[in-house]
């Protein structure tokens, strides 16, 4: 085999690899920058005398991945209202659920919270929250939205599950928003 033939074979092999490398030089920074975007999470406050926590209601996002719940976020506005948002992606008819939040009542007395959640568009889905095996329906398939008041025991910790049930396939994404406010 002549040198020119070897060179030709190498060129044929190297060129697609070089194209791949060039594409990677664009893809890797994009993925890294997305990965580096900061998130919000309540930190554990530790001091030399042990754990110190503020006497207030604390809500943490559980996070993780799920088949249909994505882009989960939690924000607290100036009025102290927590707002949890997620995108519910297209899905087959079925029942789906995911632990979304952990609510902690750091007070030594009972606290009452009000929950109110809905999608931006009516989707003929049954959306509810499950807290301590108790189901709270937020949005009915007809689009009716209901708010609920929940009593939190002193120093109680509750894992909140978001459940959604649809009887027909949903072909589009929808944004869901849950508001949690302390009322007592």
């Amino acid at each position: 085999m002549r040198n020119s033939d070897i060179k030709k074979i190498f060129t044929t092999i190297l060129e697609p690899i070089a194209f791949g490398l060039l594409a990677l030089l664009f893809i890797i920074p994009s993925i890294t920058v997305i990965n580096l975007e900061p998130l919000t999470k309540a930190f554990k406050n530790l001091d030399v005398l042990g754990v110190s926590e503020k006497a207030e209601i604390e809500i943490e996002i559980v996070g993780g991945t799920h088949q249909i719940f994505s882009r989960e976020k939690i924000k607290k506005n100036e009025d102290g209202v927590f707002s949890y948002t997620t995108t519910i992606t297209r899905r087959d008819s079925d029942r789906y659920s995911k632990p979304i939040l952990v609510i902690k009542n750091n007070k030594n007395v009972d606290s009452k919270i009000e929950i109110y959640g809905h999608t931006n568009l009516p989707t003929k889905s049954d959306i509810s929250l499950i807290i301590d095996d108790q189901v709270y329906r937020l949005e009915s398939p007809s689009g009716d939205v209901t708010s609920h008041k929940i009593l939190l025991a002193p120093n109680g910790e509750y894992t909140v599950y978001l459940a959604i049930e649809t009887f027909s396939d949903v072909q589009f994404n929808e944004d869901f928003e849950l508001e949690i406010r302390e009322i007592e």
Binding site: N35, P38, L39, K41, G64, T65, S70, K76
Partner: peptide
């Protein structure tokens, strides 16, 4: 943090949404 969250395994956390 290094929670496995979808495609990514490293996260930078702040404790307040306004700071984030």
């Amino acid at each position: 943090g290094n929670d496995i969250n979808g495609f990514f395994s490293t996260q930078i956390y702040f404790d307040d949404s306004q700071i984030t």
